[in-house]
Design a protein around this nucleic acid. Structure first.
Length: 591
RNA sequence: GGACCGGUAGUUCAGUUUGGUUAGAACGCCGCCCUGUCACGGCGGAGGUCGCGAGUUCGAGUCUCGUCCGGUCCGCCA
């Protein structure tokens, strides 16, 4: 091509030179006797000027429209006095065009590409190729690439090697629903797309690759959210002969370095907090530490209270009563508090008790609350001194089943901080550690909190005796209330692995069928190993300040997991289905 | 599986509460004018299956029911 310079390279050093530039007509300003184009390529904008002096070129310029792709020749010159545009890198110069070639015309845009117009999700996704021309999306995907490059550089420098693992693989008994791919050669059998490369990366440790990483595509057929797509990318890492400390310190260094390199952000220290402490103080295992609000357990104060809403949970071992003090919460209106009550209702809370502190000196008289009339003086006094209330505070209470109180107050904590603009800093990373090995699910069965290959801290006998007490060598990296990644020391001992599987009621036969290769690897000299996976899309969301994961993925799916650009998923041809031995039942499909 | 918000011109929205003449605005688009603009400006114009389908009514963008699409959340996501 004839292009000699990128638009952004056209600066004062080129004054007097004749150059070729190519790009899209970002905006045109036709003054009748003079025409300006803002010409855009991937680096930026430059102004090209068309005068009637060169007749043919000028009339061609008159016919151009926005988003035409052109090539123009011209001489760079300093802009006349008073016409400099300081907001452009190239704003001190302009190109006086002598030639113009239309490389490709364009239909009018279905929506405007400038940053001043908002566009609906449906239109953006249908014309994704145009949406991606917009500067926000350009910047997001460019940052994404810089970040993955920086991560690769870091890991390569530490002598990690990148290994790809299969996408056509086998369903495993883990959490999410699988995406299945029918096998042509084995009628009635299916591949599953991986939910993560977990089993493969452990197997690679048994193979003697001591430091592995991969940008791995993962697939989970579950309902979507603003931060969840059915296919997403993990930075998957695994190491042999390391303990959790070594993984944590390596990943801390890596994440700090990436933020410094790509955003010039110093993330500071990564404090550690135990799972138990996180739940107690924040109601959640991924607390946003930018938020100064904490929960306080006040269950013990209400054991002998007459107020049933509090006394019942106070005497139930599976319940908690948490107080959430919000300094200067007095600015919250009655309407907002009502909205908060509805809001916690989403999480199963039956109500939201509160106390507004008008004047702490006046005791009961200085409080405004629908509940204190049910609380006698002694308990109230204890409560107030425990909470260390001050004038203007508002205290919310959650009382009931532990999960409901935790879920609802954790969500309320975020919402209140947002409404009152309470966040104390821009970035707050932390490691959450000491996770329990198991929890009881709704049917009262043991399920792993992390996954069944996570090593417990205790021995086999202890684990069997009191599985719910057992802690693991697992760690989650949390940034601003988002779980960025998580990992653990893995079980490398066959006996322990069998003990865990038997507690999970997975018998030998099932284990062999589902992941016999991993068990076999453990039996053939598998080194101790540990690792972690980072949710790469979420990391980019945080780094770009995006509200939706769709804004950091080039071609994302809608909430119903369809693609508006390609119209996927689509129907399969009859002969394809026949080859795959698939027939439909119960849905109306033309065969 | 459930709750909520939205769907009106190419785009973003108003109009729906209280049914009533020809459904508006901005930007974009088209035409004309304009030699220093930079989200240029001026004048004029075109552009609508009010998501779709039933129903109520003399009459539906507006009310009712169903349905589809987009979004946020709960469940789900080890």
């Amino acid at each position: 091509m004839k292009r000699t310079h990128k638009c952004s390279e056209v600066t004062s050093e080129l004054i007097g030179e004749e150059i070729y530039v190519s790009g899209w007509i970002h905006r045109r300003r036709d003054h009748g006797g003079v025409i300006f184009f803002d010409l855009r390529d991937e680096g930026g904008l430059v102004q090209v000027v068309y005068n009637p002096d060169s007749r043919d070129t000028f009339s061609l310029a008159e016919s151009c429209r926005n988003e035409y792709v052109i090539l123009s020749k011209g001489i760079v010159r300093e802009r006349p006095e008073g016409t400099v545009n300081e907001s452009l890198v190239t704003g001190r110069v302009e190109i006086i065009a002598s030639e113009l070639e239309i490389l490709n015309a364009s239909l009018p845009m279905p929506f405007q590409l400038d940053e001043h117009t908002s566009v609906g999700e449906e239109t953006r996704l249908k014309y994704r190729f145009l949406d991606l021309r917009r500067s926000d999306m350009q910047e997001n995907l460019r940052l994404r690439s810089r970040v993955s490059g920086s991560l690769r550089n870091f890991l390569n420098a530490q002598e990690f090697i990148e290994i790809e693992t299969p996408l056509l693989t086998k369903a495993t008994p883990e959490g999410a629903r699988d995406y299945l791919v029918p096998s042509r050669t084995f009628p009635g059998s299916f591949f599953a797309l991986p939910q993560s490369p977990q089993l493969f990366k452990q197997t690679l440790m048994a193979s003697g690759f001591e430091k592995y990483y991969q940008f791995a595509k993962c697939f989970r057929d579950e309902d979507l959210r603003a931060d969840r797509q059915p296919e997403f990318t993990q930075l998957d890492i695994e190491m042999s002969f390391v303990n959790s400390e070594e993984v944590i310190s390596l990943v801390t260094e890596m994440v700090k370095k990436v933020f410094a390199e790509t955003l010039s952000v110093d993330l500071g220290d990564f404090p550690r907090i135990s799972y138990a402490e996180a739940i107690e103080k924040y109601g959640i295992d991924k607390p946003d530490l930018r938020n100064p609000i904490e929960l306080l357990e006040v269950k013990d104060l209400f054991k002998s209270c007459d107020f049933k809403v509090f006394s019942e949970p106070a005497n139930d071992p599976e319940s908690r009563i948490a107080a959430m003090k919000v300094q200067n919460g007095k600015t919250l209106t009655r309407k907002q508090i009502d909205d908060y009550t509805d809001f916690v209702g989403n999480y199963g809370a039956k109500g939201l008790a509160y106390i507004r502190v008008e004047d702490p000196e006046k005791g009961r008289e200085g409080l405004n609350s629908p509940i204190i009339k049910f609380i006698d003086d002694e308990i109230l006094e204890n409560l107030l001194s425990t909470l260390k209330i001050e004038e203007g505070d508002i205290v919310f209470f959650g009382a009931g089943k532990r999960n409901i109180v935790n879920d609802s107050l954790a969500a309320l904590r975020d919402l209140v901080a947002k409404d009152l603009d309470l966040l104390t800093c821009e970035w707050a990373p932390c490691w959450v550690v000491d996770f329990p090995m198991f929890e009881n699910n709704k049917s009262g069965e043991l399920t792993p909190l992390h996954h069944p290959f996570t090593a417990p801290i205790c021995g086999i006998e202890e684990l069997k005796d009191s599985p719910l007490e057992a802690l693991t060598d697992a760690y989650d990296l949390v940034l601003n209330g988002t779980e960025l990644g998580g990992g653990s020391v893995r079980i490398h001992d066959k006996g322990m692995q069998q003990a865990v599987l038997s507690l999970l009621k997975i018998d030998k036969e099932e284990a062999d069928e589902k992941f016999g290769f991993l068990i076999s690897a453990l039996e053939h000299g598998c080194p101790p190993h540990a690792g972690l996976a980072i949710g790469f899309d979420r990391m980019i969301m945080l780094m770009t300040g995006s509200e939706s994961i769709r804004d950091v993925i080039a071609f994302p799916k809608t909430q119903t997991a369809s693609c508006l650009l390609t119209d996927a998923p689509g129907e399969a041809a009859k002969d394809q289905l026949e080859e795959l031995h698939i027939r439909f039942h119960g849905i109306d499909k033309e065969a």
